[in-house]
């Protein structure tokens, strides 16, 4: 059983973060909220998300798993204005999800979840931790986009750097310690990532959020941030590129 009411902008924030990696996802509902784990089709990136019931205006649920087509939720969101309340209800008899916004009712089939098992989460110990605003990350990505299709992230005890190098040009965003919210780094670490993934992930982070970046050398990067007015948390994991000569 699942029945909830949520502000349209909060739902949009949740959907944007998940749909960056997958078109369909399995939401694990319980009495206190929901969580979700998914990897993208190429198995290059992963998302883990927890949202408390407090993110909703009203929330009641039993332990249940709902397979949801995110494109369909987006279609409903396009019918809503900011501040509108969207009501969501599971129709167990017909295996559907029913959404109400204003006077519109939209019924959608739930996605078959057999075969959508939760992916295993790597247990990583990443030596460096950089905390920065999402706006700074956005700037670094905009600088890199026209230059190359990958981006190197470097942390040293003094600064954090985003660097991308193309055939002829290169671009750097260097943020000294003073411009960071925090920096924990004992020795330099550096990893290279596919820019399209990294940029789509960063774009889905709400503006003005604090993002903590956990980084190692030739190792995956972990991005952590909060959504839904701090009632929800997201962890993105992105696997590195390793150039072998």
């Amino acid at each position: 059983m699942f029945h909830a009411k949520i502000k349209s902008e909060v739902l949009k924030g949740i959907v944007d973060v998940v749909s960056t990696l997958v078109d369909e996802a399995k939401f694990n509902m319980n009495a206190d909220g929901f969580d979700l784990k998914a990897v993208d089709p190429a198995h290059v990136a992963m998302i883990e998300m927890n949202v408390e019931k407090g993110a909703f205006e009203e929330f009641t649920a039993d332990e249940t798993e709902l397979g949801i087509d995110l494109d369909k939720i987006k279609e409903v969101l396009r019918l809503a204005r900011s501040g509108d309340i969207i009501e969501m209800k599971q129709d167990e008899e017909k295996n559907r999800l029913v959404l109400n916004v204003g006077n519109i009712t939209r019924r959608m089939n739930l996605v078959d979840i057999t075969g959508m098992s939760d992916p295993r989460v790597p247990n990583l110990s990443l030596p460096a931790m950089v905390e920065v605003t999402s706006d700074e990350l956005q700037k670094g990505i905009r600088a890199a986009e026209s230059v190359s299709d990958h981006i190197a992230l470097t942390a040293t005890p003094e600064d954090f750097e985003m660097y991308s190098e193309g055939d002829t040009d290169s671009a750097t965003l260097r943020l000294p310690k003073e411009l960071l919210l925090s920096l924990e780094c004992e020795e330099q670490v550096k990893s290279l990532f596919p820019l399209d993934y990294f940029s789509n992930m960063v774009r889905s982070i709400p503006a003005g959020s604090a993002v903590s970046i956990n980084l190692g050398s030739d190792y995956p990067v972990k991005l952590e941030f909060e959504i839904a007015d701090k009632k929800g948390s997201v962890r993105y994991l992105l696997a590195p590129r390793i150039e072998s000569d």
């Binding site: 290059v44 992916p119 989460v121 790597p122 390793i242």
Partner: peptide, 13 residues
């Protein structure tokens, strides 16, 4: 080139 240089999440599980 992408396949040979891009690691996958499964490589770290």
């Amino acid at each position: 080139r992408d396949f040979l240089s891009q690691r996958r999440i499964d490589d770290y599980v």
